[in-house]
Design a protein around this nucleic acid. Structure first.
Lengths: 256, 256
DNA sequence: TTTCTTCTGCGCGATAATCGCGCACCAAAG
DNA sequence: CTTTGGTGCGCGATTATCGCGCAGAAGAAA
């Protein structure tokens, strides 16, 4: 938790915050926005919103037909700055490769942002799920093994606040939607050092994950693998997958 | 080319531009920046840079130990806003899946941003290359088949200006570094409707790509597939890959 | 046709947000 | 002990930003 380090109010650049808010106002339900709708979505006045959008347009981050505005792939530069500068996503790639090839599923490296899981790196053809997580996707931490693995590294207090903020919505008929259920998942993961979740997000899919820490014990993320459930028992799957995950865990421990 | 639509200078939000410039100042060679170094890299004064960084920190986009600043995965939200709002990256995914599974390589969907290629969607385990393109990567258009495929849709004038801006640096011993060579690639691609490039970026790797257009003929991107060269001839590879690529091309044509 | 509504586009005057100088301070290196 | 390179911050100047308010366009409804 990067607790806010006391910000002098003179050090606050309002314009930057608004601009970023406007970029984030675009989403799948609102892929194209007029200046007015963007204003409503962000709570900024229409005139100001328009000025920001036009600035973004001039910078190449959005395009416009005069009426509507939409994001261009250039905004990926911003995210790319992260991929580029964070060593972990790259260091982790060969491990994901080995895991996905050996186990025949899809391997991910995920991190926590606020209360959601973000999938940062991925390897493996997603033949099992018709979609799988797209890179950069953000999902609630409670419905993927990586999320549970990372939550299991937090203090009980932090988990309490997490639970209080979170609405538990079911994705499949098997999704755990009770607080106690989630707590049990987390406790299991803490005890065993890995998380296993089944059919929480998609039917017939099982996820197994281990948290990744620095040598100082600071949590940096989690490696997870999605496997089709087939006829394999949970135990067999763990037996098969865990050694590989652990190996990656230790290897990454050594490099940071 | 989204030509700048005459920006009233009062509609220019300087703060937003600076903030984004600072985010982009982080890179693999400079993953962690002090306020001073960030200032030097962006050309903004140190004091201002520091204020922007602290604002970003407060917003959760960067973290800091007091001295150094580094990006957090939250910046992925910005890129994600694009993935989320652009329908193409998602519509394209099932096709990439089929291509990578059938051909045994890695399939990409790429777009042009300015003069570079950005890889927007990807499917397939990259067993052939030890890295492959990471999602969001940006590479010069002349060294990947997707880039040539997209350039082949441009007017001769545009290609001229592209060539004049671009310095042709070799990545492998086989990289084409002459203007005529590039023009030949482009012309071939325009003629045949697909691009094929060999060992331009990595040894023993071949790329085949087709441009993707809307029904109105507007270029939206390209689908490409990276294949290990093995003992397969170029002709055999094209014969094998092209039908799948074409199929995806037509399918996507129909949906937009 | 008229009348609403909803959008853009822009000028303007007010003001508060942003700027960068300049100084104190700290730590590491020579 | 000096130099170098960094942070942190107060302050006064200024200019960048704000949002009101109006004109105009485009569409929908009556």
């Amino acid at each position: 938790m990067p607790n806010t380090p006391a910000l002098n109010k003179r050090d606050w650049i309002a314009g930057l915050e608004k601009g970023l808010r406007i970029i984030e106002a675009f989403s799948d339900t609102h892929p194209r926005l007029t200046a007015s709708t963007a204003a409503r979505r962000t709570g900024i006045t229409r005139t100001a919103t328009r000025r920001y959008l036009r600035t973004l347009e001039h910078l190449g981050y959005v395009e416009s037909d005069g009426q509507y505005f939409w994001l261009t792939p250039r905004v990926l530069r911003l995210g790319w700055s992260y991929f580029d500068s964070a060593k972990i996503p790259r260091a982790v790639q060969p491990h994901l490769q080995r895991i996905s090839l050996t186990l025949g599923g899809t391997a991910y490296f995920a991190v926590l942002d606020e209360d959601d899981v973000i999938f940062v790196s991925k390897d493996g053809s997603n033949k099992i799920q018709n979609i799988g997580y797209v890179l950069g996707s953000r999902v609630p931490a409670n419905i993927c093994s990586a999320g549970i693995a990372m939550l299991s590294c937090r203090t009980p207090d932090e988990i309490d606040t997490w639970l209080s903020k979170r609405k538990l919505v079911p994705y499949t008929a098997y999704t755990t939607t009770t607080e106690e259920g989630i707590r049990e998942h987390i406790n299991n993961a803490r005890q065993k050092g890995y998380a296993i979740l089944e059919q929480q997000m998609s039917q017939r899919v099982r996820g197994i994950a281990v948290p990744i820490r620095t040598r100082e014990g600071h949590l940096t993320g989690a490696i997870s693998v999605s496997l089709p459930m087939g006829n394999e028992t949970s135990e067999a799957a763990v037996l098969r997958a865990l050694p590989l995950l652990r190996e990656a865990e230790y290897a990454l421990l050594a490099t940071f």
